[in-house]
Every structure is written in structure tokens, then in C-alpha cells.
Nucleic acid binder design. Structure first.
Lengths: 157, 157
DNA sequence: TTTACTGCAAATTCTTTGCAACAAC
DNA sequence: GTTGTTGCAAAGAATTTGCAGTAAA
């Protein structure tokens, strides 16, 4: 799907929801769909401050992210750092995540068999699943290697 | 394992770590191991205020929970509500969680096959797993049923 | 004594909200 | 004109921290 197409959808979604198409919302939308990185609200706000374009306040960033989640244009992703991350869903199917404790890198993985087993586990308990988080925390190949070879990765993050 | 035994371990752990055995730490330890519920730091703090015993400040509750996690007496559990939950590990093996969006109930599940597939997924990417979260959010049997039968579960939480 | 601990209140971090001015429709 | 939006600054919620006094070892 092209960006122009999905942008039209976004504007259509706004109208259908009796929300207004504003320069701020357009700009946020464009910025979100111009990256393939995972990002936080604060990161996005920083991008918007650094780059050219209509000024957007922090509150509007948070509010617009909510709108985008409701419209299923992006998904929020709890990485366990106390800060919500987001990713757009353009051309993505569902996947799970591995988060590097050293460099913060987020890798995606997917295994249909896990999904199925998870579905069965829920069924057995009569639990209706709305969403799930399956997140591995640890060290990515690079940081793991660096670790073993002596120098140390950033223990924070 | 008896509670007395594990309490001795805790005091031993403190000494080995050059930490001190204080009335506050003893009381927090006792309270944590007297429940089988999952609880938050604030919940624990509330229990300690309501019940008899040496007064414990909020800061000490948070600090002691960290100590207990480091010593592997309890585990923290990210339920995605913005508040960390804890559970003690006495007689528990690893398990994953289903969190009810309506009533907040936390159910546990475990499937060895999922664990194995997850291990393989990490291996394939050269990722060294330190910990993981696998959490299903949705509606438990009770709330799901209540939902279908007309009356509504608390949509918050 | 030395070293660590405690309570307190202030600080942090991420996010949400009330409100008055303002812009889309 | 209506209705919804924006920016701002203040409010929130959970958690952390600096500090001065206090208690284990």
C-alpha cells in the first residue's frame, strides 16, 4: 500500500469519526509513516521539534498517537521500560519482540506455532484474548558478543 | 519449603550482600510471603499501613521490593497497567499470565512447548534471553460471560 | 565506630487534563 | 456559527532520590 493511499484512509477515518483534519495531525501522520523504526511519544515529539514544519505541541503528539492507535494505523508496544513504544502497521503482520537491554534495539519474531499454542492455552481457561505481549528481554547478537569479548554494553536502558 | 526456612535464607542473603536485617525488611518480607496474590508496591504499602506492626515508609517498601527481586525471592511482573506487580516465587516455577481487562484478575499458564519455541526463535537471531514477558490481555471466563449476558464489566483497569 | 538504613519531601519520568484562544467544517 | 483542536501549564500516577538523623553490626 502506498503512503498516499494510507494517508487518504487516515483523513477518511478522521472524517468518519467526526474528527478534524488539521495541519498538526497531517504532520504527525507523515512523520510516523516516514520511519520504519519503533519510536516513543517523546522521540516523535523531538523529531517534530528538530525538523521543519508546523509547530506541534507535546500534548497534541500524545493525543494524536491515541487517535492513530484507535484507527489501527499504529500499534503501541510495551517494551517494559516504562515508556510506550509505537510502530506503524503499514505492511506488517502481527509479530512479537526481542528488546536488547544494552542497546535498546528491538527485533521482531513470529512463530505461528506459538500463536496457536497460546490460543489453546486461553481457550482452556475460557479466556477471551484481546491482545498479547510476548517480549524477550536480553542481549542482541552484537551486544552479547561485545559483552563476551571484554568491553561492556551500556547496562542501563 | 517452609516459610521459616525461606525467611532464614532471606536474612542470610542480606548478610551475604552486606545489607542489614531491619524490622522494616522483616515485616515486608513476612507480609509478602503471607499472601498468594499478585500485588503492587502501593498495595503492599497499603497493607502495611492498615495492619499492625513496625511503621514502614513508602520509600522503604519500594527499596525492599528491589532487594527481594535481586535476591530472587519475588519476581516483578509487568501487567501493562503502568504499575508493576509482584509475586513471590515460593513453590512457583516459571509461568506466563493472562490479565483480565475487566476485573484485573491474573491467571497463570504454562506450556513447555511455547518456552521451547521461544528459545529457538531467540537462538536463531543470536539473542541471549535474560527474561521474558508473555501476557495475554482480555476477558476471563467470568467477565466474558457477564459481558455476553448483557450487564457490563468494568471497562477500566 | 563504621556502614547501611529510614522517613520525608522533593524530584523524575511519562502521560493526561482543564481551559481559553483558535481553526476546521 | 458549531464543534472539535491546539498549546500551555498544571496535574497525575508510579517510582526514585538527596539528605539528615538513626540503627545494625
Amino acid at each position: 500500500m502506498k503512503q498516499t493511499t494510507i494517508k487518504k484512509r487516515f483523513e477518511q477515518f478522521l472524517r468518519e469519526s467526526s474528527l478534524k483534519v488539521t495541519p498538526q495531525r497531517r504532520r504527525i501522520f507523515d512523520r510516523v509513516f516516514s520511519t520504519h523504526e519503533h519510536f516513543s511519544a517523546e522521540r516523535l515529539y523531538a523529531w517534530l521539534r528538530e525538523e521543519e514544519g508546523p509547530r506541534v505541541s507535546r500534548a497534541t503528539v500524545y493525543r494524536t498517537l491515541d487517535v492513530l492507535v484507535k484507527g489501527a494505523f499504529i500499534e503501541s508496544l510495551d517494551t517494559g521500560t516504562g515508556e510506550l513504544m509505537y510502530e506503524h502497521v503499514l505492511g506488517h503482520h502481527h509479530h512479537d519482540h526481542m528488546v536488547c537491554l544494552a542497546c535498546g534495539k528491538i527485533q521482531e519474531f513470529r512463530d505461528e506455532r506459538i500463536e496457536e499454542l497460546q490460543r489453546l492455552a486461553a481457550e482452556k481457561l475460557g479466556f477471551r484474548v484481546v491482545s498479547h505481549v510476548h517480549r524477550l528481554s536480553g542481549y542482541c547478537r552484537t551486544c552479547g558478543a561485545r559483552n563476551r569479548s571484554g568491553s561492556s554494553p551500556d547496562p542501563g536502558a
